[in-house]
Each structure stands twice: as C-alpha cells, then as structure tokens.
Amino acid sequence: MKPHALLLVLPLLAAAGSAHAQVGIKAGVNGAVLNGENIGMDTRYKTSYHVGVFARIPVVGPLSIQPEVLYSLQGSEFRSMLANYDTKLHYLNVPLLAHLKVGPVYVEGGPQFGLLLGAREDGTLRISAADGYGPVDRDAANNYKKTDFSLAAGAGLEVGSFILGARYTAGLNDVNDVADLNGANDPRLKNRVIQVSVGLKFGGD
C-alpha cells in the first residue's frame, strides 16, 4: 500500500482498536456528477458504486464518531454537440462523521477527504467536419487533481446489525487540473454524489 493511502486507513485502524468501538462493512449505489462553472457542456448524473468499511466510536449517549474508508467510483456524463463521453473517477474516500442515533433512526454529517486513484474517459468526440466523430478511451488522471475535500450528510435506519442509509456529499474544491493560457475561463468542476448503501455492523451498542 502506498504511504499516502496508509495514512487514510490509519484512523479507521485506530478506531477499530478501541474496546467499545463497533466495526462494519457497507456497499451501495452512487449517483455521481461533476458540476460547477465554465463547463461548456451538459453534465449528467451517472450510476456507479461504493464499498468499504467503517468504525463507530461512542462519545456520549447517542453520539458517536464514525470514520470510514470507502472505494468510490464517481465522475459524470458529459454531453454537447461535439462530445458524448463519460468520465470515471476512482477515489479512496475517508469520511469522518458525527453519528447521532435515536432508536432505529440515525443522522450523520462531517468532512470527507478523497484521494484520486485513477481516471478514465470513454465515449465519442467530434474530430473534424470531414472526419465526424471518433471514439474516446483514454487515461485522464492528469486532468484531475489528486485530492478532494467534501462535506457529507446523511440519514438512515438500523435494525439489529443491519443498516440502510442514504448520504449526499458535496465537493468544496475544484478538481479540474487542466488550465488554459490565462485561467479565467477554466472549467471549475466539483464532485456531487448521492449514495444509498446497505451495511452490517459488528459489536454491541
């Protein structure tokens, strides 16, 4: 594992070592889009997935701290008269959430740090008036910044060890890493992700 990836996992490992912490696994569906300013084409939500692990550390009463480590496939559909392609962004995300549970219902919120593991673009682009459209299937990691900072908020239900939840994460920083000569009209792209997940937790309340 690369050193920077290990740094993201360490908070979860430390949490799992707590005598009173719960741990669990989760997976689910993403609805992801890149939106912002100066994009010059339509961006649409694309369906993908996430999977990962979490720990829950009691603080006081119904309040806990919940660090997670998630692999999340994000990105967007880009559509215009000249382009029709999808961008796939592979992230290792580490949310650090305040988790408040009352009965079977919980709410949660907090920051999330993301590390870009890779990116690809595939679809079609207009090559020229004479040649028409051509296929696109290329690595795009150099087009996107390596880190992302987001705010996350969600809610859900817990019945025994089973968890059903929904969450929205909103990126705060521009992840576009392609600049023109003056930078004034650079696209500004921010991650937006809706997640629905199921999970299992282990350990007593």
Rank of each mutant, 00 (worst) to 15 (best):
residue 6 L to C: 02
residue 90 H to I: 01
residue 137 D to K: 02
residue 188 R to F: 01
residue 123 G to K: 07
residue 119 A to K: 04
residue 48 S to A: 14
residue 140 A to S: 14
residue 189 L to Q: 07
residue 57 I to H: 04
residue 150 S to R: 12
residue 16 A to R: 03
residue 117 L to D: 12
residue 145 K to E: 11
residue 114 G to L: 07
residue 8 L to K: 12
residue 205 D to Y: 02
residue 90 H to Q: 14
residue 16 A to Y: 00
residue 96 L to C: 04
residue 131 D to S: 13
residue 28 G to W: 01
residue 8 L to G: 05
residue 21 A to R: 06
residue 166 A to I: 11
residue 94 V to Y: 03
residue 126 R to A: 10
residue 112 Q to V: 06
residue 204 G to E: 13
residue 39 I to G: 01
residue 14 A to W: 09
residue 182 N to D: 14
residue 169 T to M: 11
residue 4 H to N: 12
residue 34 L to H: 09
residue 131 D to Y: 11
residue 10 L to K: 06
residue 176 N to V: 00
residue 14 A to D: 02
residue 34 L to R: 12
residue 37 E to Y: 11
residue 92 L to P: 14
residue 93 N to E: 14
residue 17 G to V: 02
residue 59 V to G: 03
residue 77 E to I: 10
residue 102 V to E: 01
residue 144 Y to C: 00
residue 157 L to C: 02
residue 154 G to P: 03
residue 158 E to N: 10
residue 100 L to M: 12
residue 141 A to Y: 10
residue 4 H to P: 08
residue 82 L to S: 15
residue 94 V to R: 09
residue 81 M to A: 13
residue 106 Y to D: 05
residue 77 E to V: 09
residue 72 S to L: 06
residue 175 V to I: 15
residue 176 N to K: 07
residue 39 I to W: 00
residue 170 A to L: 14
residue 71 Y to Q: 05
residue 107 V to I: 15
residue 54 F to G: 03
residue 175 V to F: 00
residue 182 N to R: 00
residue 188 R to L: 04
residue 143 N to Q: 14
residue 8 L to F: 08
